[in-house]
Write a protein that binds this DNA or RNA. Structure first.
Length: 572
RNA sequence: GCGUCGAUAGCUCAAUUGGAUAGAGUAUCUGACUUCGGAUCAGAAUGUUGCAGGUUCAAGUCCUGCUCGACGCACCA
């Protein structure tokens, strides 16, 4: 938190000397290596370069009139013009005290809240959620949590796949071969079976093709029976999705699927045609792109059979969201393969609504690979269902808890296993840079050591254990007693001050791995502190002071994990 | 063919406006008061950041070319 105060004063000082300088570049950040100090600014080197000045000299001039002595030791100029700031222990102590009094938790809400729509998860009706939905769902939810914590107004909208050609096949299967008993027991499995069964006959049998097309057309034209079946498929699917979301503690403000926009699709297409953005080509309605884009193939707005496809739906969706929520930004969380689609979608949208100021972000992520480095599937090549995957995570976690802590009652072990299992899945998804593919590895994600959810949760339970024992002994944290003397106390305290930066970094770039790594470092620093500084065995003000550090670390760990969508447990 | 993304320690991965000696974990080796929860901590060792050039005070990061890989490119979403 000190970095903001230092930064603001540094900016004022730079403005005094160079009124035209772009202050947005004058940033204060944590030092990469603590031996340089706690915070640094590299901005002066860039500014000097622009003006062809001597960077070192500029730095000296800036520092000469810069007073940050309330928070820092004298500012050092290093190398070609780095400014290094070392926080005064008293200043760090004061921030911790104010946190302990409940004034803040080392982060600040934004002064410029924005309306942001986040579009994520988006499963398809009549198909179980599977591995392919993990990242969008978990990543999207974590991003939403970080934005909301910083004070932005977020609208979440689950744009489910509830319309499209697959319903022709599903309707045939439903009418010819539906097993009601199976449907009641496991609706998605039954619908999946129906789809596969019809699909298998599809290629070889022209009669089925014609029938599927007919059922689809009937549905589109509002045939009552088909509509009724379709609605039932959606209802059942949503119930099943809800079970998974409930396990993952994920909620949506709105579930407006593709079908919600049906009535607008023709209008969108006509509008694009009228504006000259779209044209007829080979029987379809398409948008061609300028040469400069490098896209030689057009985007299809209406297929030659008159049906719309997803570019059209997405355009209608965009327009609806703008009108309904007036967002400053819309964020789409999908896999990397849809990059071209979103680039083209945004491009068309800009031409269609040139004055719209909304910013459009495609937050994309890589694939989940199996142990062999190919896309993660079952042995028979099927998608792994999310529910089954979560079951296995909990089972594996239960085995570990039982091994480590056999005396806990079964009910408690089950609850711990639930928290730990879900945490492991989420954390292993959020830890890698979202843009890279990652390898799904049970042993690694549930490992007791290393950068895992288990390690973080363990650190948390140790803190809670100390708190319980302190309470039994009648000892308590005392803000007044807080004193940072030993190196590991100071190191832990200074790291607490960086919590806000890590949340902001995560929210700014939609990268939860920044926060994951922050929390891992925090847990490590806590372990070092815990190793070096007795808490319960200490006495008097030492004990009260260290209990403050424990308590604040616990609160930050819990809040940080909460941003990642991860629950904590008191024992494990 | 065009395009997007990637290639970093044995392995899995980080690296926040271009910043300081490229970091963690894991595996390997060694050690820690008879453990405030040892599911812990400390230490050792590990690199031509795919290759070749360029830009500059400074390049894993930016530019050019090349190699390898993943993914995407007219009627699925």
């Amino acid at each position: 938190m000190l970095e903001k105060l230092i930064q603001s004063r540094l900016q004022s000082r730079v403005r005094e000397i160079l009124p035209e300088a772009n202050l947005a570049t004058v940033l204060v950040r944590p030092c990469p290596d603590l031996k340089f100090g706690d915070y640094q600014s590299n901005a002066l080197m860039a500014i000097a370069k622009e003006r062809k000045q001597n960077p070192r000299k500029l730095a000296e001039e800036v520092v000469a009139g810069l007073d940050v002595s309330e928070w820092c030791e004298p500012v050092e100029i290093a190398g070609p013009g780095f400014l290094n700031f070392r926080a005064k222990t008293e200043a760090v102590t004061e921030v911790l005290k104010s946190a302990s009094r409940g004034d803040h938790l080392f982060f600040e809400r934004t002064k410029a809240p924005r309306n942001i729509i986040v579009d994520f998860s988006s499963p398809n009706v009549a198909k179980p959620m599977h591995v392919g939905h993990i990242r969008s769902t978990i990543l999207g939810d974590a991003l939403v949590r970080s934005l909301r914590l910083l004070g932005h107004h977020v609208v979440t909208d689950n744009h489910i796949g509830d319309w499209g050609t697959q319903f022709g096949k599903l309707l045939i299967g439903w009418k010819q071969d539906l097993n009601r008993t199976n449907l009641e027991q496991n609706p998605l499995a039954e619908m999946g079976r129906l789809y596969k069964q019809v699909n298998a006959r599809f290629e070889a049998d022209d009669g089925i093709k014609t029938l599927a097309r007919q059922e689809l057309v009937n549905l589109q034209q509002g045939d009552p029976e088909n509509l009724k079946i379709w609605r039932e498929m959606i209802d059942l699917s949503l119930q099943e999705f809800g079970k998974v979301y409930s396990r993952l503690a994920i909620q949506f403000d709105h579930v407006l699927g593709e079908s919600f926009y049906n009535s607008q699709l023709k209008g969108v297409a006509k509008n694009l045609l009228d504006l000259g953005l779209a044209q007829e080509s080979e029987g379809a309605t398409v948008v061609f792109f300028e040469k400069s884009t490098g896209w030689s193939d057009p985007a299809i707005i209406l297929k030659s059979d008159g049906g719309a496809n997803y570019t059209t739906t997405d355009l209608a969706t965009l327009e609806y969201r703008l009108k309904t929520w007036q967002p400053a930004e819309i964020v789409y969380v999908t896999d990397a393969r849809q990059q071209l689609h979103f680039q083209q979608l945004f491009h068309i949208f800009r031409r269609w609504h040139p004055v719209a100021e909304v910013s459009l972000s495609h937050v994309w992520f890589g694939m989940i690979l199996g142990p062999d480095g190919t896309p993660f599937k079952t042995r028979t090549g099927e998608n792994i269902e999310l529910n089954a995957l979560l079951d296995e995570a909990e089972e594996r976690a239960l085995a570990t808890v039982t091994e480590k802590n056999p005396d806990l009652p079964e009910k408690e072990r089950l609850e711990i296993a639930r928290v730990v299992g879900i945490a492991a899945v989420k954390y292993s998804d959020l830890l890698p840079n979202r843009q890279s593919d990652y390898r799904f590895d049970w042993d690694k994600m549930l490992a007791l050591t290393g950068n895992t959810a288990v390690y973080l949760l363990y650190a948390y339970t140790r803190i809670r254990s100390v708190a319980r024992k302190a309470a039994e002994a009648g000892a308590g944290a005392s803000v007044e007693a807080l004193q940072l003397t030993l190196p590991s106390e100071l190191a832990l305290a200074k790291h607490l001050l960086r919590f806000g930066l890590s949340i902001e970094a995560m929210a700014a770039e939609y990268r939860p791995n920044y926060l994951c790594n922050y929390l891992f470092e925090l847990a490590g620093l806590f372990s070092q502190f815990y190793e070096n500084c007795p808490v319960l065995k200490a006495e008097g003000s030492d004990r009260s002071s260290r209990l403050v550090l424990c308590e604040l670390t616990g609160r930050v760990l819990k809040k940080g994990l909460e941003i990642l969508g991860i629950e904590t447990t008191e024992r494990m």
